[in-house]
Design a protein around this nucleic acid. Structure first.
Lengths: 128, 128
DNA sequence: GTAACTGCAAACGCTTTGCGCGAAA
DNA sequence: TTTCGCGCAAAGCGTTTGCAGTTAC
């Protein structure tokens, strides 16, 4: 266990958001400025493989990470601000398994993301 | 409206799967071998922007396309074969809106993918 | 001392783009 | 004729990797 890995682990342990690799790199460098981007990539991948971290792809073309959680959750992405909110819904989970089963499959994983705008903030969309 | 665009439109109109760009390019070249990959990329993006096509990302790192459908559906991906099955489930859709609302949001889009293995085919996974 | 890890820079895979030629209207 | 689309090759972007030097143990 090297210093770099400890720092990167710390960064993600402290994070309460879903930082991408560049952001992890920046935060790591705040603690120790001698950590290269390649090491961040390598370490994040390593941590993902041993299930310490989860990798997500929220459609912006870069991977984002969070610590692998005890209890499963999905994500709602605020498309105005980019904020990510975690939620759980047992009913949806059960329906997913049921759908798979009905199609002759056993569910082994899923991806559910809700893209949404704050209520009361949804003026008829003028183009931005 | 050029010949290339007509061919590419045809290819996706005929497709009953979710081809990636390379596959679209191959199929297009079967009809007219003078269509470049760049044109395929440009045309698919164009068609997506005017809502003739939908772009998907099933986690393999390349975009996949299908014609924009009248009725919305989600996807189940057979992780053994890579096959993609479309399905609809009104209950899940409604629950998604409800979840968003409960969090103070209005749902504007979502992504739901089920990753699954064929029933009876799910032997305790030996490493592949 | 040895194996594992790191930084650097080069390479990678998918996608986009600048440019000059050619086709559509 | 004038605009728009095309093919080509180069560039862009996030990510991975070969290599030589450096660390952990």
């Amino acid at each position: 266990m090297t210093g770099q890995r400890r720092v990167i682990a710390q960064v993600l342990s402290d994070a309460d958001d879903h930082p991408n690799v560049e952001v992890v790199h920046q935060r790591a460098n705040t603690i120790d400025s001698r950590i290269s981007l390649a090491t961040v990539y390598r370490t994040l991948r390593l941590f993902e493989e041993i299930n310490i971290l989860e990798r997500h792809d929220f459609g912006d073309g870069r991977a984002r990470y969070e610590k692998a959680d005890q209890d499963h959750h999905d994500h709602l992405i605020d498309v105005k601000s980019g904020k990510v909110i975690e939620f759980q819904n047992r009913e949806i989970e059960e329906l997913q398994s049921a759908v798979a089963k009905r199609l002759g499959y056993k569910l082994v994983g899923h991806r559910l993301e809700l893209y949404a705008v704050p209520l009361g903030d949804d003026a008829p969309d003028k183009d931005n």
